[in-house]
């Protein structure tokens, strides 16, 4: 009995290692290319290593754009969206899960239908709203359309519904107000769901390109993806891969670090929010 099981285990680990390696190839390749000397061509036979290591591509990328401004703007935008979203999706999820009022189900279905509309289709109406509010070319303009989230509301409603009603009754009997109930009874078990939602929100808004591009026109209001798009848009001349990869790594490293640091919590939250 012992032997087959340990063989199975070894095989499983080996398989996982291979899969992990395959999945990390794009990232490893980006790192290898970004460290290549700019003059070295990339061709069959020399696609990984070519003529030593060099930080020249990073130096060029850093000198090509005001990174300080871009990082700061991106941080403000991502945090500004997430914090307000956490408030709105928690309250909306709670209302749809536990507050009874006529037309609740219909309203919820209407709310969910937002998920069917791709964000790109809403660019023109959103732009129109932002313009009439006089917010064009400001950071709040980038954040505002995302302050409500159908996905987050849905996720939180489902989570809140799994909390036994008895808990709420017990809190009521003890004299808790609705917001105390929400805070002490509903939110603690919803933490994994909130974390999972935060991950998707941060990564999607960190990477958003078209909306910030459309709604800003100054260096001082631009986010990192827009600022660095100039490296990826060399459609006419051949791409400068070293520069492109250096730029890409400069964009993604904060997300990578965030993921590595909070890896355990992220995985745990996805697993538990999926199981419930």
């Amino acid at each position: 009995m012992m032997q087959p099981r340990s063989r199975d285990k070894t095989f499983g680990t080996a398989l996982l290692l291979v899969i992990a390696l395959v999945w990390s190839v794009p990232l490893l390749w980006a790192i290898a290319l970004s460290l290549r000397p700019p003059g070295a061509p990339i061709a069959i036979g020399s696609s990984w290593w070519g003529g030593g290591l060099s930080l020249a591509s990073f130096a060029r990328a850093l000198s090509a754009a005001p990174f300080e401004t871009y990082y700061r703007n991106t941080l403000i935008v991502v945090a500004g969206i997430l914090i307000i979203q956490l408030v709105t999706v928690t309250l909306a999820g709670f209302v749809f899960a536990r507050v009874k009022f006529p037309g609740r189900e219909l309203l919820f279905i209407l709310f969910l239908m937002q998920l069917l509309v791709p964000t790109a289709a809403l660019i023109i109406p959103n732009y129109s709203t932002i313009r009439s509010m006089g917010l064009y070319d400001t950071l709040p303009a980038i954040m505002m359309p995302f302050w409500a989230s159908a996905f987050g509301t849905f996720l939180l409603r489902q989570t809140f519904r799994t909390v036994p009603l008895d808990y709420e009754d017990a809190a009521r009997i003890d004299g808790a107000t609705w917001w105390q109930t929400l805070w002490h009874v509903y939110l603690p078990p919803a933490r994994p769901a909130l974390t999972a939602f935060a991950v998707t929100s941060i990564s999607s808004h960190w990477n958003d390109f078209l909306w910030p591009l459309v709604v800003t026109s100054s260096v001082s209001t631009r986010t990192i993806t827009v600022g660095l798009a100039s490296f990826t848009q060399m459609g006419e001349s051949g791409a400068e891969w070293g520069l492109l990869m250096a730029g890409t790594l400069l964009v993604v490293w904060p997300l990578l670090v965030l993921f590595i640091v909070f890896q355990k919590q992220f995985v745990a939250s996805f697993v538990s929010s999926g199981l419930k």
């Binding site: 023109i124 109406p125 732009y127 064009y136 100039s230």
Partner: peptide, 24 residues
């Protein structure tokens, strides 16, 4: 005069079309 970087060629067109259709 101010120069505004607007992505690749298709992005420039999208930005202008959005602005005009959105009433700007």
């Amino acid at each position: 005069a101010k120069a505004v970087f607007a992505g690749g060629y298709p992005d420039v067109l999208t930005k202008i079309q959005t602005t005009v259709q959105g009433g700007g």
